Simulated assay, not measured.
Amino acid sequence: MADDETREIFVTGLKNAHAMENQALSIMKPQVKRIENYPDIAAKLEQHIRETEGQISRLEEILSSLAEGHSSLKDMALSAVGAMAALGHSVAGDEILKNSFANFAFENFEIAAYNSLITVAELGGFAGLVPGLQANLDEEIAMAKWLEANLRRTTIKFANLKEAGQTAKI
């Protein structure tokens, strides 16, 4: 593969990752605003929002080091998709569970994207840019593990609140 082709794949992947992280923000921010009965989830989402903002900054630094910028169109499009997904779950009677499932799936999507980006970086001779991508990957892995480890507890709490006739939705 020619170096310029690998660079193009890498830059496209970085722009996609930037848009993906903006989508993540548009999903998490509405969720965290609506949470009342799950303070641990709210706190974790707030932490991950801050991490995601840092991930966006790292991606912008990497793009800048390549004399590239992010794609505003991709950012806006995926942010709109994320906002619609968050809105769609808000009408569900089991919103907290649906959000938990979707967040876990999205974290694993991000993990796959960063693993692929790291591979392309290594193939294209951009090994010096891997640490920033690895930092993003590590944060996504930690969030996915947290979501997986807490799904049972969240489900039990939801069921108990529902059974007690309390607001279980979120």
Rank of each mutant, 00 (worst) to 15 (best):
S26M: 09
P30M: 13
K33H: 10
K33G: 10
R34P: 04
R34V: 04
I35H: 08
I35C: 06
E36R: 15
N37R: 07
D40G: 15
K44N: 08
K44Y: 05
I49A: 13
I49K: 15
R50Q: 14
R50L: 09
E51K: 14
G54V: 09
Q55R: 05
E61R: 15
I62D: 00
S64R: 14
S64M: 03
S64A: 13
L66M: 09
A67D: 08
A67T: 05
A67M: 12
A67V: 06
G69Q: 12
S71D: 14
L73I: 10
K74Y: 13
K74G: 01
D75K: 15
S79R: 13
V81E: 14
A85G: 10
H89G: 09
G93N: 14
D94F: 00
E95Q: 10
E95S: 13
E95K: 12
I96W: 01
L97H: 07
L97G: 08
K98T: 14
K98Q: 13
N99E: 09
S100M: 15
F101M: 09
F101E: 08
F101Y: 12
F101H: 10
A102H: 09
F104L: 11
F109R: 05
N115P: 02
S116G: 06
L117T: 00
I118N: 01
V120E: 01
V120Y: 05
V120S: 01
A121T: 00
A121R: 00
V130G: 00
P131E: 06
L133M: 05
A135Y: 03
A135L: 06
N136I: 02
N136H: 03
N136D: 09
N136R: 02
L137A: 02
D138S: 07
D138V: 05
I141N: 10
I141S: 07
I141Q: 13
L147P: 01
L147T: 00
E148H: 11
L151A: 04
R152M: 11
R153K: 14
T155I: 03
I156F: 08
I156A: 03
K157E: 07
F158M: 01
F158W: 04
